[in-house]
Nucleic acid binder design. Structure first.
Lengths: 215, 215, 215, 215
DNA sequence: TATGAATGAGAGTTCATTCAT
DNA sequence: GATGAATGAACTCTCATTCAT
């Protein structure tokens, strides 16, 4: 009853806007990932962001647009950088695949939710025919194309096995990453992240390597 | 006013019962997998099964119990057999891993929905703390234990690399299978299932193989 | 605490259905007319019908469909009969116009809401481009066509003035009826319905009559 | 960072005030008439006026006050002048009724929305028991009184039929005008305004005329 | 003067579930 | 066994209104 009424701070509007939007997106991210999109209500998101529903609707036209903004942000922070890194690298194909696995291992360890968002959303939105489905599809495609390109190079240089067409090799690699993220999501408390990442890297590198010749 | 009411049945009740339950479970399976559990209404399920909601409630206490029965059936048809097969096999560890990948490749091709159910449900139910979560966790654990056991044998016999602890190797293998099922779910129309399965088997076998010695 | 719990009566389902639908439509009619469509909530309607919102949605897909059903019912009870009567009559054109004005005077006196529904809905839905707009437009057109036809006959027989094209004459007659219904709606408590109807009939009959020749 | 902030005005404040208010009222008029009062949001009004909601609230206490101001303005431009004209005229009763119909025909043709406002608002506000309802009632009463007065004169002079009490005759005339405005509102695109006005004038003049004697 | 941010109440709609028939 | 009717809670979204800047 005493000092619950803080003078609503003297914050410039532009700053307030930025911070409110960030709160909303952060709340949405954590809730969408832990509960799922449908199972998260706008009230939940607003509440966790310290706002009311109405305020959320002030910034985002509707729930789907909120998700859209979130995916865009995640693309920018998670997917675009690794695609760029892989593309810009001078290293061998193998080195670049290592860059890839490391990237997801690190982000997965530090900000779990980020890489999970796309996987989970792609599954929940499956078959709904909305613009989100298309967005996620494109993100996946971009990532797979980048990996396929590396694979192609590795096959030409003899680093990687040529048994599998590059696009399928890329699909398998992405599948493994997705699967691991989900496993990490489901059993993160019971697993040693480092050991898991090590196992994954091992599987990928040996899995795609050219059969080693006798010395 | 006379005989408009044809006696609707002449089928023994037990038979009817069995067929109604099967209809409901089949409908639920296809809907849960394509739309998700939450996004599927009891009306949808009943409608697709050719019944009314009330009838579904006659057979299943509530929606969650329906899902439970479905998971049980799937365990029996999909998971239990492969665990048994692997356990009973006399083949080498490598052969048994091949049995595993083939099993999922075949079932994934013929009855897509079956293996997808557990993956999707495990994600949608994540964190809800209900009995389903526990059920799925157990199924995964059983499968991973079986695979870990094979891995252990393979490591001892020198077939497989010993770099990775068996439980983590198993986790990675399951992750890859899950990831592939999801990829198959998302892009099935654009992918050649055989090529994907081939890529996966290649990745797993090479990925876990002991580094080949010089001849 | 004594007998508040009446054994929910032993009413056959078909009867219950009929009576529930009627309650809902009746409530909707009276509320739509007194408050307007938008200003009436589904809760209001359900409450006045002695049901819950959910029950209303059991019978009507959505609010607009409820309105649609209501308009259909009103067409059947109010508009179709008078169009039929006018068409079937052997009387003079003048007699048939009298039939028309009497019809609206009687219905307006006894069941005020019935003839008001179309007028009010046509105004509230104006410009929304939904199916209701189209429905009401059609109803008006049918009525005007019937009146125009009578007018045409009256003009040919020399009963009515030929100064005004029949369709416009019909439009003016309908406009007068609409205007009177609205006036009756707004000030019904302060007006003598009989006097008003008398004034209207007088205006119409003299208004459309051929200028009387010298004897 | 330098002069991005152009001083937005150089207009004397009183001028600005006047013009903002006018914008708001004009927007409100067109929106209230085309969509209705309830269905028009303060945002719609502000947007069409080139302002924000806040600005509208600066000039008008609330939505109802905005409507009130609008009705006042419309009274001044539409109703008061014709009442004054009729009262001041030296012409015959018939001439004065012609003045009336012409007035509405002209304003209806040139500024449709003006005369529609009262009709539509009177219907939408019906039964809400707010001050608007009272305002509109008074406007109608004033107009009807003026017409009744003319009618009385016409009856005394023998120009008009004495069958109908003057107040009822006035009510019928107003009803016809209202009905025609609504018809014009609903079907304006399909009707010839001139023909409609002609039909209306004809109906009124013949409708209220004393039965013509043989020459 | 005017804006942008935020609130809170309420609307339409969906859906798991219950129960009398 | 199965249906149809009904409930009640929850959810998305809208909007008049307020207030600090």
């Amino acid at each position: 009853m005493v000092t619950n009424t803080i003078k609503k701070q003297r914050v410039p509007n532009s700053e307030r806007r930025r911070s409110s939007i960030k709160s909303v997106l952060d709340s949405a991210l954590s809730l969408f990932v832990t509960r799922g999109y449908d199972a998260t209500s706008m009230d939940d998101i607003a509440g966790q962001a310290g706002l009311t529903k109405g305020a959320v609707y002030f910034y985002f036209k509707d729930k789907l647009s909120l998700l859209e903004a979130l995916l865009l942000r995640t693309d920018k922070e998670l997917i675009d950088p690794i695609i760029a890194k892989i593309g810009a690298s001078n290293g061998s194909a193998r080195d670049r695949i290592i860059m890839l696995t490391n990237w997801f291992a690190i982000v997965g360890a530090e900000r779990k939710e980020l890489p999970l968002l796309h996987v989970l959303v792609s599954l929940e939105m499956h078959g709904r025919g909305n613009r989100i489905e298309e967005m996620v599809r494109k993100t996946y495609k971009d990532l797979q194309n980048a990996i396929a390109e590396v694979t192609r190079v590795g096959q030409l240089s003899g680093e990687f096995t040529s048994d599998i067409p590059p696009e399928y090799q890329a699909a398998v690699i992405v599948a493994l990453i997705d699967g691991l993220l989900l496993e990490w999501h489901r059993r993160g408390d019971q697993l040693d992240g480092r050991a898991l990442a090590h196992g994954a890297r091992n599987m990928i590198l040996n899995g795609i390597a050219a059969t080693r010749q006798p010395a």
